[in-house]
Amino acid sequence: MTERTYLRVREDMPPGHVRTPAYLRGKTGWIERELGSFPNPEELAYRHAGTPTPLLRVRFSMAEVWGDAAENPQDTLDAEIYAHWLAPAEAPHAT
């Protein structure tokens, strides 16, 4: 297995249109794949051009996302998250 690059989702809770699900904020996952750049939807939503922004598929363990409430800690959740929502991180304890 190649080394995982871990990223943590920002915990911000701004009002308005964002594409980062609330249940993933503050959670740490690893890059599943990089998807290239897409216009920032938070700008598109308000009729602006949309700055090209890298989009990544990030994989989280269910243990990381739901803690003890996870149905099966080994299962995973993948989501597409824009780079400005992500910061470098250490591997979480749960994985």
């Binding site: 308005g16 249109h17 939503a45 308000y46 009729r47």
Partner: peptide, 13 residues
């Protein structure tokens, strides 16, 4: 005339 994100923004609001 608008984007899918504009559609979603109004739906959410």
């Amino acid at each position: 005339h608008f984007t899918v994100d504009g559609l979603r923004r109004v739906l959410e609001d």
